[in-house]
Each structure stands twice: as C-alpha cells, then as structure tokens.
C-alpha cells in the first residue's frame, strides 16, 4: 500500500476519531496516543514522536502493545534476543534474510559502525529502518540510509541509546 494511500489515511482518521470519542466520553481519562501516530512512527521514517507522545507511550501499556503489533507485523527480518554477548566486543546478529553487525571504529573509538546486510534484495522491499526493543521494553528506532548493493551502514556514537540497545544480547531487532 502506498504511503499516501487515501483509503488507508481515511481508515486511520476513523480510528483516531473513535479513540477521541471514547476519551471524551470517559470523564478524567488521559487522552491516549492516537493509533495514526503510532502507525506513522512505524511506517514513515520521516515522522518523529514528540517527547510528550513518547511519555504517553511509555505510560500506556495498551499503546505500547499496539506499537509492538505494528512493528512485528510483516517485518523484513526479525532478530530475536541472543543467548550471550560476544566476547570480542563486536556484535553480530544473523538471520536468514539479514546480518546486522556493530563494529567499533578504529579511527574514533567512541563511534561504532552499524552494518546491515540483506539477502534477496531483488525480490523484496528494502528495509528503511530498524526497531530495537530493549530488555526494559522500550522501543528505539534507527533510520537506515539507502542500501549500496545489499549493504547499508550507519555511524553511531558508541554510547548512544541505539548502540547500547543493539549491543545488549537481550534486545530484539526488527528490520522494516
């Protein structure tokens, strides 16, 4: 479905209207994060959740569950939690359709290269971003640059939240 599909947008607006109506009918209830915002967060790399929206998300288990369902629905690849951390310091997660690596920079040790290699490039939509669920349940998103051949690479600060989450064996990764 195209990103600006009018039928999809109408359906999302209807869901939002339904949620707003329910919120209005329940006195004192907090206004929930709208489903359309979650949908855009998962499917539109340019869309960012505001800090207020992120606060709502972390405080609302139902919204977090919606987000998880959206992310887990038909990902390009899913990388489950690992049994143990690598002893070499480098991170490598490999599934049938993709390989994810985290390689420390020799030039600047405070930075790491996130590499994503995919197979079946010709027959699939190329992933545009990855989502990481940390052991605490928090979600992080990283946009991927255009693939060069079957590889995309991002340079990250080693102490960034996304690099830390990817280094944690208990985290889960979705490529979408």
């Amino acid at each position: 479905m195209a990103a600006n599909d009018p039928v999809r947008n109408l359906a999302l607006a209807a869901l939002d209207a339904d949620e707003m109506l329910r919120d209005l009918l329940v006195p004192g209830a907090d206004v929930r994060l709208s489903f359309s915002e979650l949908y855009r967060y998962v499917n539109d790399p340019a869309f960012e959740l505001s800090p207020a929206a992120q606060d709502k998300l972390s405080a609302d288990p139902a919204a977090a569950a919606d987000l998880e369902r959206l992310i887990a629905a038909r990902p390009f690849a899913y990388m489950p939690r690992q049994a143990a951390a690598s002893t070499s310091g480098a991170v490598r997660r490999e599934v049938e359709r993709a390989v994810l690596t985290l390689t420390p920079s020799r030039a600047t040790p405070a930075q790491v290269y996130l590499g994503v290699e995919i197979v079946d490039l010709e027959n699939a939509d190329v992933p545009t971003h990855l989502f990481v669920r940390s052991p605490s349940g928090a979600w992080l998103r990283q946009a991927l640059p255009a693939f060069s051949g079957n590889r995309a690479q991002v340079l990250l600060e080693a102490n960034s939240a996304i690099a830390n989450a990817l280094s944690t064996p208990e985290s889960e990764v979705y490529l979408r």
Binding site: A107, R151, Q153
Partner: peptide, 8 residues
C-alpha cells in the same frame, strides 16, 4: 584512518 576491513 584505517578502519576494520569489514566496514565500508
């Protein structure tokens, strides 16, 4: 600077 041969 030289980087790990595995990266681009």
């Amino acid at each position: 600077t030289e980087e790990d041969p595995g990266v681009s």
